[in-house]
Simulated scan of single mutants.
Amino acid sequence: MTKSQNLLEVLFYINNKKIFTARDVSDTFGISIRTAHRYLMDLSNSGVPIYTEQGRNGGYRLLKNSVLPPVTFSIDEGMAIIFAFQNLNNFQSLPFDMNYETVTQKILTLFSDETKRVIENNSKFIEYFSNRMHETKIDLKQIIEASMNNEVIEIKHNSPNKVTIRNVVPIGLYTYNGKWYMPSYDLNISDIRSFRVDRIE
């Protein structure tokens, strides 16, 4: 790897450490202690707030929450992410707000112009087709929030044969064959049951 790549790896490493020594960096990356000191000095000179801890158990300390290491992706990783978002674009209802075009453009800004051109050209030869996902009548975010808070909710469920009012504790969401499902603990029958979300009011 290039020196800049090595420095980035060291930055990721020390950002997750409370306190560390040059020996820790040396052992982790298989480099000499002298090189470890030089890398830490280079990072410090570039603005990373690395402080020296004096004393018997001293070493280096990074000011916490002050560094957000840059995220880097390979071309294949970028293609995979864009392909995954292309899949999400088939959903008419999602438990979060997302604009496919906006997200795609934000991802592409992470790459160099040359890499961006490669990804955009490759994308022309890949297309994701699936069943158009059913639109739901309720906000999927409400189901996620109820699941996280272990809440009892009352639902009106329209099955093919009858309409029932049920008190349930949602467990989460999953999608299958173009439809959203809400696995829940059904208080009416004291058992787990999955409800098709597009049939819920």
Rank of each mutant, 00 (worst) to 15 (best):
S4Q: 10
N6Q: 11
L11V: 02
N16D: 12
K18F: 12
I19C: 14
I19H: 14
I19L: 10
T21E: 09
A22I: 01
R23M: 10
D27M: 12
T28F: 00
T28M: 01
G30K: 01
G30E: 03
G30Q: 04
I31A: 02
R34T: 05
R34A: 08
A36P: 02
Y39C: 04
L40Y: 07
L40Q: 10
L43P: 03
N45R: 13
G47M: 09
P49V: 10
I50T: 02
Y51D: 15
Q54I: 08
R56T: 15
N57G: 12
N57T: 02
N57L: 11
G58W: 03
Y60M: 06
R61G: 07
L63E: 14
K64W: 00
N65F: 09
N65G: 05
S66F: 14
L68G: 03
L68S: 10
P69K: 11
T72I: 11
F73N: 04
M79T: 06
M79A: 09
A84L: 13
F85E: 01
F91M: 13
S93W: 00
P95L: 13
F96P: 14
D97T: 15
Y100F: 12
V103Q: 14
T104E: 11
T109D: 04
T109F: 06
L110G: 01
E114Y: 08
E114P: 02
E114H: 08
E114L: 10
N121V: 00
S123R: 14
F125I: 13
F125T: 15
F125K: 15
I126G: 04
E127R: 06
F129I: 11
N131M: 07
R132G: 00
R132Q: 06
T136L: 14
K137V: 04
K137D: 01
I138Q: 05
Q142G: 14
Q142H: 05
I143T: 08
E145K: 06
E145T: 09
A146V: 03
S147C: 06
N149I: 08
N150E: 13
I153M: 12
K156I: 13
N158S: 07
S159V: 06
P160S: 10
P160L: 07
N161F: 11
N161W: 09
T164A: 11
I165F: 09
N167A: 07
P170V: 03
I171P: 00
L173A: 15
L173M: 02
Y174Q: 09
T175D: 05
T175G: 02
Y176I: 14
Y176S: 03
W180R: 04
Y181W: 02
Y181H: 14
M182K: 06
S184E: 05
D186Y: 09
N188H: 08
N188F: 12
I189T: 12
D191A: 13
R193H: 13
F195A: 07
R196L: 15
R196K: 15
V197A: 13
D198H: 07
D198P: 00
E201K: 15
